[in-house]
């Protein structure tokens, strides 16, 4: 088991390294660079910048060097904990994204928690009470959740919140807390606002996992080993939780990494619509501005989340399913 974990760590690190290369190339792919984007913005404001000035800027930023040299410089910095400098914000990247990353993490993990708690418990209910009224309601809501894109749901919530409660459900803080440092009151205020983005981000995933849980559990409930355990006199609730539910949770756990990546990649657009102080809107802006190091850091961050999610789900699977532990070692 230990060697399996080590092997997984090594492959996770390799993946991250390859991703950093791909990410760096991807950022360079759109035509032009930060200097071009900067010049066109300035010219809209009526300021004319000469070609010489632009070239000087490029040399100063290192944009005149070949791609691989730029990459090595960047990745060398990243490994030493220096994410580079954001030209747009005139601050180090780590400073720009620092607080937003923690908010994104809170958002992603609350969404994950919400998704799994809700999907597993409703899934169990739906399977055990198949074709009951509750099951039908869960099924209909599940289909709606699957079919509706997150940003649309966000817009509907914004509209309804305004119309019925006369309040803005966007953002993550009440106006009085936006620019104050962290405190208990600010944290509680965030929790109060958190449910809207969590609901929006988690809806599709919950619906999907709920369907998976219900279908797998229905299969497992009819398996021989359940009848055999029942024949041993195991009380019904304990029986349900110990045997079929544990089996049915396997595919749900296996998709944890994937679910986390969906939440993270769905976050930018929803974050924009709900005007959240998360990394989402920042990421989109960085791409538009061609703010290279900022965008690169964000891509790296998102990918790390996916890799970590997959890693966690692999480890969890090894813990809950003995067959996973034995497969490689034998």
């Amino acid at each position: 088991m230990f060697s399996l974990i080590v092997r997984r760590i090594i492959s996770a690190l390799t993946t991250l390294f390859l991703i950093s290369i791909v990410a760096f190339i991807l950022i360079q792919l759109p035509p032009g660079d930060f200097v071009d984007a900067y010049a066109s913005k300035k010219s809209q404001g009526g300021v004319i910048i000469t070609k010489e000035q632009l070239d000087a800027m490029r040399i100063q930023m290192g944009l005149d060097k070949p791609l691989y040299q730029q990459y090595l410089k960047w990745i060398g910095g990243v490994l030493r904990g220096n994410l580079g400098y954001s030209w747009e914000y005139h601050r180090p990247v780590s400073e720009v994204i620092g607080e937003r990353i923690s908010i994104t993490l809170i958002l992603a993990f609350s969404t994950l928690l919400f998704t799994y708690v809700l999907a597993i418990s409703i899934g169990i209910y739906s399977a055990v009470r198949q074709y009951s009224i509750g099951d039908h309601i869960a099924t209909v809501l599940g289909y709606i959740g699957l079919a509706m894109p997150g940003f649309l749901f966000a817009l509907i919530l914004l509209y309804l919140g305004q119309k019925w409660f006369g309040m803005s459900v966007g953002g993550l803080f009440s106006p009085e807390f936006v620019d104050v440092p962290w405190s208990w009151a600010k944290f509680m205020d965030m929790i109060k606002h958190l449910w809207v983005p969590v609901l929006v981000l988690g809806m599709a995933g919950t619906a999907f996992q709920l369907r998976t849980m219900r279908a797998t559990l229905l299969d497992e409930l009819n398996k021989m080993y359940v009848t055999a355990a029942r024949a041993g006199g195991v009380p019904e609730f304990r029986l349900l939780m110990k045997y079929p539910v544990r089996m049915a949770i396997n595919p749900i756990v296996a998709t944890l990494g994937w679910e986390l990546s969906k939440i993270v990649s769905g976050a930018p657009i929803v974050g924009l619509v709900l005007s959240l102080p998360s990394t989402g809107p920042l990421f989109i802006q960085a791409l538009l501005d061609q703010d290279m190091y900022l965008a690169g850091a964000m891509i790296l961050f998102y990918c790390t989340m996916v890799v970590i999610g997959t890693f966690i789900s692999d480890i969890l699977l090894m813990i809950i399913d003995p067959r996973m532990r034995f497969k490689r070692s034998s």
Partner: peptide
């Protein structure tokens, strides 16, 4: 009353010893 089932392979939960 206890019971012995037809398929020993599928009558034990694979996740428990």
């Amino acid at each position: 009353i206890s019971m012995i089932f037809q398929e020993p392979m599928s009558s034990f939960s694979p996740l428990h010893t």
